[in-house]
Write a protein that binds this DNA or RNA. Sequence first.
DNA 1: AGAATAGGTGACCAAAAGGTCACCTGTCTA
DNA 2: TAGACAGGTGACCTTTTGGTCACCTATTCT
Lengths: 109, 109
Amino acid sequence: MDDDLVFKALADPTRRLLLDALFVQGGRSLGDLEQVVAQRTEMTRFGVAKHLRLLEQADLVVTCKQGREKLHYLNPVPIRLIHDRWIDKYTQHHVTALTDLKRQLEESP
Amino acid sequence: MDDDLVFKALADPTRRLLLDALFVQGGRSLGDLEQVVAQRTEMTRFGVAKHLRLLEQADLVVTCKQGREKLHYLNPVPIRLIHDRWIDKYTQHHVTALTDLKRQLEESP
DNA sequence: AGAATAGGTGACCAAAAGGTCACCTGTCTA
DNA sequence: TAGACAGGTGACCTTTTGGTCACCTATTCT
């Protein structure tokens, strides 16, 4: 597995938007995802397809052909590996406590 | 906090190398880190300094001035937030099992 | 004080990435 | 079978990014 492809794939906001959409619900087609992107930015179908291909090459998205449609699913494994690369098992609880605190502070204004 | 800065910062292999070095041991100066980078690629001090500045702006690295030296430390919080963005609490155990399996398979040839 | 050391700034150039278009393949349906 | 629909490919242009250099500031040591 190539680290570089994963990080490069995550570097673009449109691709992160696609991952967000697939996180909420998997099994979406290109046309479906195109509409999701179109709600935020102006982009043609070709642009979205190109982004999806990069996500697929990075193994962040897995696909499944069904007739003439291609369904996309989020694969969380590479993201977990990023986490494990820089967060030690021993400091993990510590960091979790920090992020939970941060979330609480942001929710209550 | 700006997501985009974090992901852009992680997109470069030299910057990931710097994070790896700081993960092993924190409190390193620019000159120290310059040597780490020089072991792998040919790069001037200016290049390394530029990368460190991006990591600092992304809050992936925090610094502490001590005399004429500037010490760098890894901050794991933004990485944890990436994890939490796409890995649901419920699927977390599932993914952990998968990555552990993957690690075992790669360790035993 | 003066030299050496550690680091910072802005401009500049080459390489890579994002986005679009014309054109093509495969699949479903009337 | 013809046409509409879902998706893929390669070339092209524009913008962003990585890297270096000349030059500057601040701190330490003799």
